[in-house]
Simulated scan of single mutants.
Amino acid sequence: MEKEIKITKKAARRGDDGYKVVSVRMKEEMIEQLDELSSKTNRSRNELINLLLDAAIKIVKVEE
């Protein structure tokens, strides 16, 4: 069951947003895909990761 996640472009903006910093190891291919999406949407890699995780966590089903 594959769902589409839509991300819109937005204007550049900087400032404190109240997020905590975490470190994650990722494959180069994943980072390349994020960078490509970042260019297309004018969003930072960090913002994209947060948007994608937020969308994904809502559709996760834990199997017992």
Rank of each mutant, 00 (worst) to 15 (best):
M1S: 02
M1A: 05
E2H: 08
K3T: 12
K3S: 13
K3H: 08
E4G: 03
E4P: 08
I5E: 04
I5Y: 00
I5G: 02
K6T: 05
I7Y: 08
I7D: 02
I7S: 04
K9T: 11
K10L: 00
K10R: 07
K10V: 07
K10H: 07
A11P: 09
A12E: 10
A12G: 01
A12T: 05
R13P: 03
R13K: 09
R13Q: 03
R13C: 09
R13M: 12
R14A: 10
R14K: 12
R14Q: 14
G15W: 07
G15I: 03
D16E: 08
D16P: 01
D16Q: 05
D17P: 02
D17Y: 15
G18V: 04
G18D: 06
G18K: 11
Y19F: 05
Y19A: 05
K20E: 13
V21C: 10
V21Y: 06
V21S: 15
V21T: 09
V21N: 15
V22L: 07
S23Y: 07
S23D: 07
S23P: 08
S23T: 14
R25Y: 14
R25L: 08
R25A: 08
M26D: 00
M26Y: 01
M26W: 01
M26F: 05
K27C: 08
K27S: 12
K27N: 13
K27V: 11
E28F: 03
E28K: 00
E28R: 11
E28M: 00
E29C: 04
E29A: 04
E29V: 00
E29L: 03
M30T: 13
M30V: 15
M30A: 07
I31H: 06
Q33E: 14
L34K: 10
L34Y: 14
D35K: 11
D35Q: 08
L37C: 07
L37V: 12
L37Y: 02
L37A: 11
S38Q: 10
S38P: 06
S38R: 08
S39P: 00
K40C: 09
K40L: 09
T41P: 03
N42I: 04
N42D: 11
R43F: 07
R43Y: 09
S44R: 06
R45H: 11
R45K: 14
N46P: 15
N46Q: 14
E47Q: 09
L48E: 02
L48W: 10
L48C: 10
L48Y: 04
I49D: 10
I49R: 04
N50Y: 02
N50H: 07
N50C: 01
N50P: 00
L51R: 00
L51D: 06
L51F: 05
L52C: 06
L52E: 03
L52W: 08
L53W: 05
L53G: 01
L53K: 05
D54P: 05
D54Y: 01
D54L: 09
D54E: 09
D54N: 14
A55D: 08
A55H: 10
A56P: 07
A56H: 15
A56S: 14
A56T: 05
I57D: 15
K58W: 01
K58Y: 09
I59A: 14
V60D: 06
K61L: 02
K61H: 15
V62Y: 15
E63G: 04
E63N: 05
E63W: 03
E64V: 01
E64T: 04
E64P: 02
E64Q: 11
E64L: 03
